[in-house]
Design a protein around this nucleic acid. Structure first.
Lengths: 143, 143
DNA sequence: TTATCATTTGCAACTAAGTTGCATTTTTAT
DNA sequence: ATAAAAATGCAACTTAGTTGCAAATGATAA
């Protein structure tokens, strides 16, 4: 783990107390380019003690504060990914998720600007406020 | 329940044995314009005995045969909806689901043709095979 | 730095959703 | 009508996630 400075800063920014558990979970999510499940994260953190309940609560806190978001997968799992861009600022409410049908990895892609969103009028009586685009197929690793 | 003829026909069409449980579940799904959860369906079927395990297996069978599809919701539930159009033929692999943020109902909308799908080239290394569009907002009932 | 208070953590017990195995019943094909 | 195959119901079980609470830790202000 590099300089914790940045990590601590991020936690502060989102109004979260700095604890070793949170730093570790944040670091784990930052190192991953795919969304991770509770089980994924737990298995990656072996050097410090981390109770499953603490992890559940940590992830909830991340989501509630807006630091991360969660995706419900087809197999009824929750995957977590940070809402940070490379520059540390908050991203999109609207997401594009890519789900690999071979390895089940979920990637959070930047919303492709050329994707048209159906406007409210196109769907009678439904007022669209945000959207999530889920793409299924083969990811680069499984090619 | 109307003429069971049509119901039986559908089950046959999808290679499913005709049983009272399946007819009842099929009917329940046909009467609904929203996707239903295991619990929803169970609570709607009170006149005949229907074990929770049977319902799980029935829904699995529907999905496996292609008669229905399931949607994982944000709250880690599974909702089921038939893949039948009004005319009884199979629809789209690609879905648009509308999730109401007030009542949590999930509607399966016909894919709006004006919605652009990002092609493979737009997402480097990711081969897109199918997609699901999730719209969030307010449904007609909650307006 | 230290004392204080609020928050977070870990543990154990609990809850609820979903699964498995198996004996019985129902359906379909002969 | 009968036999084989599949579906059903039940009980026991598994597992993910939750709750309550006592102990530990982090933030704040003297």
């Amino acid at each position: 783990m590099l300089s914790q400075k940045r990590h601590k800063n991020i936690l502060h920014q989102y109004g979260l107390k700095v604890t070793s558990a949170r730093l570790r979970v944040l670091d784990t999510l930052m190192r991953s380019n795919i969304a991770l499940s509770h089980a994924d994260i737990l298995s990656k953190i072996r050097d410090i003690q981390l109770d499953k309940v603490t992890l559940y609560r940590t992830l909830d806190a991340f989501v509630k504060s807006g630091l991360a978001h969660k995706v419900a997968t087809e197999d009824r799992n929750w995957l977590y990914a940070l809402d940070l861009s490379e520059h540390g600022d908050t991203v999109h409410r609207n997401h594009t998720h890519f789900i690999c049908d071979y390895c089940d990895r979920v990637y959070c892609l930047p919303v492709s600007p050329q994707v048209g969103i159906p406007d409210s009028s196109s769907v009678e009586g439904f007022e669209v406020r945000s959207h999530e685009f889920r793409l299924h197929g083969t990811c680069p690793q499984c090619h």
